[in-house]
Structure formats: structure tokens, C-alpha cells
Simulated assay, not measured.
Amino acid sequence: MAASPAPADTRRDAPALSGCIIAFNEADRIADCIASLAFCDEVVVVDSHSTDATARIAADLGARVIQRPFDGFRSQKQFAIEQAAHDWVLCLDADERVGEALRTSIEAERARGFEDAAGYRFARLSEYFGKFLRHGNAYPDRVLRLFDRRRGGWRGKREVHEAASVDGPVRTLSGDLIHYPYRSLEAQLQKTQRYARMMAEHDFARGKRATLGKLILSPAWRFWRGYLFRGGFLDGWHGLVYAYVRANYVRQKTIMLWLLQNGRAIESPKESQPGRHVKD
């Protein structure tokens, strides 16, 4: 009796895939991030000269580690994909992991050669102090992270709240990118204040201006849109706290823009330190 043919190697002819991560002082999270990219052909970690064991852990796990001074989230991510050995790239932050369902979706598309798509978006599911938020402004929070770098990348001038874009069709995959954004409430408040400053400076440079109406109404709208109209209340007290903190971010950003347009400083010189890299 003839032997049955061996199962086809679904990856043999599939496009090669590079996992790209940017990191700074992520020794407690980088290993799980890299482990979730085990299906990639390589993992590239661009480290901003961490002072902890981030780079060593990444290298020990087989990642190719490249040191580069941090000059903005968008710039750092674009640099990372430019260093990749392959044109199809999957971009993660160190506080993110590819969930099992998402991995299955990615591998299925890869087996088909990523045909008819220049990139893929998928939902991001964020953990918030012991609970995954599945409603409100927090979810599905779809992000474009898997794409052909020959047809796109981390483009534009905005270094905060950066987003990749591609020239061509973008498809949505099932499954979640698991996100662990905050180690503590204090860390979240520090991040939101830093992001508010960066966005206010970006908007001011582009000629955008705050108004009294925006100062009063925008934070309230952000809260009620997420908490009530998008169902954030279904996440219990976690959803309430999240909605309040995000509304406060809008308030801070608008106040800072107001100060800038009126010629007032929004931070003291001693707080302006190079190399700060805290990713939301």
C-alpha cells in the first residue's frame, strides 16, 4: 500500500515575516511580547538604550537588538521596519502580545500569501487594573500593524498617537492584540499628561487653536461618548475610571494648547529631559 503524502508545509512558500518591537526599560514585559511573535521569521527590537535588562533579555530570546536614541514614537517605529530583513512586518509595542485567535488569523492570511491586501488591521484589547475593557472608547480600538513596508509605513510628522498607513487595500482580521498599557494609575496619569503636552505642541505647530467652547465641551463629550453612548458603563467601575481619565486627557491637552497660543510655558526646563520613552 502506498504511503500517504506528507502534509504540505504551509509556511514554506508563504511570505517571510518580521516582527518589529520598540522598547525602553521593558525588562518585565519584553519576554512575553517576543514569545507571542514566535511564528515570525525574525524579531527585531529597537531599544532606546534601556538602563535595565531589556536588551539582554531580548537578545537571549533570539531577537536582533538594535540600539537607537529615542526621537519620537513614529520615527522609532519607522526605523524598526527599515531594519527588518523582510518586507512584510508586524509591529508591536513591548506592552502588547499577539493573542492566539489573532495569530491564527495572521497565519491563515500568510498561508494565502497576503493576497489582495497591502495591510491588515485588528482589534486591540486593553487590560485595565485587572479587567479587560470590551466597551467604550477602549475597544475595539482597531490598529493597522501588519503590512507590506513597500506600500506603506509609519508616515507623517506626528510623533505621538502615531499610526501606520499603506497604499492599497486594508483588511480586518479577527482576534485581538492583547495590550497591557499601565503598570499603575500613577503611571497612566503621567503618560496622559506627557501625551497631552506632545499633542498640544503638535497641534499648535500646525496652527490649531483652542477655544473656550472646546475647553468646556470637549472633555465632557469625550466622557459621555465613551461611557454612555459606546457602553463604557458595561465595564463596571473600570470603565468609569477609564472614561474619567481619558476625558481628563482631553482637558489637559486643550488647556495646554490654550496656554501655548497665549505665549505661556506649559513645562519647566528641568522637566525637558531627552530620551524619555513611555509608550501608551
Rank of each mutant, 00 (worst) to 15 (best):
Q78G: 11
A80C: 15
E127R: 14
A265R: 15
G175L: 10
R97A: 09
G263E: 11
R97E: 12
L125P: 05
D167V: 12
I30V: 06
S272P: 01
T54D: 02
N248I: 00
G226Y: 05
S75Q: 11
H202K: 01
D235W: 04
Y182P: 00
A2H: 03
C91L: 01
I22F: 08
K157Y: 12
G136P: 05
P269N: 07
D203A: 09
G175C: 11
A23R: 03
L61H: 12
L92S: 03
S36T: 06
R222E: 13
A59M: 00
P5G: 01
R121K: 15
E159N: 02
Y139H: 09
V44R: 07
L234N: 14
V241P: 02
C91Q: 07
Q67L: 10
W258G: 01
K208H: 13
R225G: 00
S48D: 15
P274L: 10
R103F: 02
F70R: 10
N262L: 02
I34F: 10
A59N: 00
R150C: 11
E26S: 10
L61Q: 13
Y244P: 01
D71L: 09
S218G: 10
N262T: 11
P219L: 05
R112F: 08
H202F: 15
K77N: 06
A117N: 11
A163Q: 15
N137E: 10
R145P: 01
G130A: 03
H49L: 14
I266T: 12
M256G: 00
A31C: 00
Q261P: 09
G119M: 06
H161Q: 12
D141A: 13
V166E: 07
G62S: 01
I30T: 01
W154P: 04
N262H: 15
D9F: 05
L257S: 07
D52W: 08
W258E: 06
E82F: 07
S218A: 15
R103L: 03
P274E: 12
M199T: 01
C91N: 02
S36H: 09
R142H: 14
R149E: 04
H86A: 02
G226D: 03
P15N: 06
V245N: 14
G207P: 06
R209M: 07
T211Q: 06
I178Q: 03
S75I: 03
L144M: 10
I255H: 11
G275V: 02
A27F: 12
L146H: 10
D87T: 13
N262P: 05
E42I: 12
D32W: 10
D176M: 02
Y120N: 06
Q83F: 04
G152V: 00
V278W: 03
P169T: 10
F229R: 13
R230V: 00
